[in-house]
Design a protein around this nucleic acid. Structure first.
Length: 546
RNA sequence: GUUCCGGUAGCUCAGCAGGAUAGAGCAACAGCCUCCUAAGCUGUAGGUCAGGGGUUCGAAUCCCCUCCGGAACGCCA
């Protein structure tokens, strides 16, 4: 079914041809914020004013006269500077209801992604501690992005890169060792880059419970490494599950060393002339691809920098057949983008194969003061605690509201205390309200009826507002998916919930004639379907009652 | 010094592939439950869109400069 935008563009093109014998290159159709200005609008006349050397108002009028209105458009008006405004008919609006009832949760799905294989890597926190609230934003954003892109026809793989191979795991093992010894009253000095989180002590306690004092007498290093990573990664997985974030792949950095991919990548880079030696170190020629300076991949002491296994990892992703790689990184890693983009091209990707979405760091406030999130210090506030306090839905809704590059503040006192005023309940309540009405309707012998095809009763402003919003859902999905801006969904949820509440207050739904009740119930069912689906996209439950 | 983000109502933020009177939530104020869940609705008030130039018929939105805040500029990850 062609969209109204396309139909209008067509009609305008024809009108232009007749009136001025002109082929318009781009016709921009928009939806005015103010309903006074129609349901759809074009600024065509203004953009043509210069080439036609005429008053935009006159051009608009001329166009209007030649216009053959597509079905569904009631009337056309020309407004002040030269806007051409289109008003849509009630029949056209209500056609959306049977469509939604028929498609159900498939409504809004599209094939705009054309099955493109997309890998979204996000969270990827080091298994050296628990997830803290700073990580939650990335988890919410990546997961929602994946859900929206799936809905838009992309073939999405969600991936978590487990940094289990580097130096931080060495520090983790040392930290565990210190805590373990402390459990037996022995004080060792914490190394400089140690991890001080309480979870490290818990970890040591489980080792003690299982192995007693064994590692006082034999070297526990290797065991601490393996056990520590597993223990902490399991914890992270649990935290993610509680946050309704699931990954398709947990990819181990260590595996890249074990199966030789890191070494092979190094060889590959050397053989293709992307490296050179200098100061006893091996440099990667990233400036060839626009980086500001070349980067070391093999240090003077012979060990690798973080970059090399990372290149191997991205090479591996490419080898798995992904057309598009998306990395969601924290704002503190933005400087890393040019070298990654350079590297991806060295190993066979194109410049735009990799896209890095930067997520600004969350500033967490407690008692009016900033709380620095750091696993090393151990002072971070865990995601689990926050989810336990305010609930998964509230936290996800909160993080999903803002665009990725907003420097957002999270006031913990506010977030926890104001549970009942959290906007997530506003949206969920709309869904619960609809269900509640259905129960009442059932008592009167009514229920949504998908066989109804024509509508006469949905004439009030509030009902029309809802239908217009419902009609916009498919294009919303497309925009959110292609621009990768999941927060747009959250915005929509709020707007739709608001329209529902207004409708509910203005119209005594179960009081009218039978046909009115039936039509209204169908409108509500369509709303419920879309509301639930949109909430799902941002990882928020749609409760039947509250 | 360079690079990347941000600066919009008292607070938290939308709006930024230019469009019509700049929006929402919270906070404030005034109304609305003998009636389908008041976690709701309706209305009022609140803005020099950091500042200054420029492009344009039209700029919160695009370009340049300045100021303020955050982040990054490692043979750490």
């Amino acid at each position: 079914m062609p969209t109204m935008e396309d139909a209008l563009k067509n009609a305008l093109e024809n009108a232009l041809k007749q009136a001025y014998d002109l082929d318009a290159d781009v016709i921009h159709i928009e939806q005015p914020k103010d309903k006074q200005n129609g349901d759809f609008s074009t600024n065509l006349a203004m953009t043509l004013a210069k080439t036609l050397r005429n008053n935009p108002f006159v051009i608009a009028e001329t166009n209007k006269e030649k216009l053959e209105l597509p079905s569904g458009v009631d009337r056309v008006e020309v407004a002040r500077p030269g806007f051409i405004n289109f008003f849509v008919s009630e029949d056209y609006l209500s056609d959306i209801i049977p469509e939604i009832l028929e498609k159900g949760e498939q409504f809004g799905a599209s094939d705009i992604g054309k099955g493109t294989h997309v890998n979204i890597e996000f969270v990827s926190v080091n298994p050296t501690g628990s997830m803290h609230v700073g990580h939650a934003r990335g988890a919410a954003a990546g997961d929602s992005m994946a859900r929206v892109m799936k809905k838009a026809g992309f073939d999405v793989t969600k991936e978590f890169y487990v940094n289990d191979g580097g130096n931080q795991i060495h520090n983790l093992a040392l930290s565990i060792n210190v805590r373990y010894h402390e459990l037996f009253g022995r004080t060792l000095e914490m190394p400089g880059d140690a991890y001080h989180g309480p979870e490290i002590t818990e970890l040591a306690e489980t080792i003690k419970a299982e192995h007693g004092d064994r590692y006082l007498y034999e070297d526990g290093y290797t065991y601490f490494r393996e056990y520590g990573v597993k223990y902490l990664l399991d914890g992270i997985k649990n935290d993610l599950a509680a946050f309704d974030v699931e990954f398709d792949v947990f990819f181990s950095e260590k595996s890249l060393y074990d199966n030789g991919e890191v070494a092979n990548t190094l060889k590959f880079l050397k053989e293709n002339g992307h490296t050179y030696e200098k100061d006893d170190a091996l440099f990667l020629n990233t400036t060839d691809y626009g980086d500001e300076k070349d980067r070391v991949i093999v240090k003077r002491d012979g060990t690798y920098t973080y970059l090399l296994p990372d290149i191997a990892y991205h090479k591996n992703k490419l080898s798995r057949g992904f057309d598009k790689l998306i990395d969601i990184l924290g704002g503190d890693h933005h400087g890393y983008i040019p070298r990654l983009k350079a590297a991806i091209q060295m190993v066979g990707g194109k410049a735009d194969t990799l896209e890095v979405d930067i997520l600004q760091i969350v500033k967490v406030l407690r008692e009016g003061k900033e709380v620095k999130m750091s696993k090393r210090s151990g002072k971070a506030i865990s995601l689990r605690d926050l989810v336990d306090d305010v609930g998964k839905d509230a936290v996800r809704y909160f993080f999903s509201r803002h665009s990725l590059n907003t420097h957002m503040d999270l006031d913990l006192d506010l977030a926890i205390k104001k549970t009942n005023e959290n906007p997530v309940f506003y949206a969920q309540y709309a869904h619960a309200r609809i269900n509640s009405l259905f129960e009442k309707a059932a008592e009167q012998g009514y229920e949504p009826d998908a066989s109804i095809q024509t509508y006469q009763a949905l004439t009030n402003e509030q009902a029309k507002d809802i239908m217009k919003l419902l009609m916009n859902y498919p294009s919303l999905i497309e925009e959110a998916a292609t621009k990768r801006i999941p927060h747009k969904i959250t915005n929509y949820v709020h707007t739709l919930a608001s329209a529902l509440h207004s409708f509910y207050s203005a119209v005594p739904i179960l009081k009218g004639e039978a046909t009115h009740i039936r039509e209204h119930l169908n409108l509500l069912e369509a709303t419920r379907i879309v509301l639930k689906d949109a909430l799902f996209l941002i990882g928020v439950n749609a409760p039947r009652s509250m």
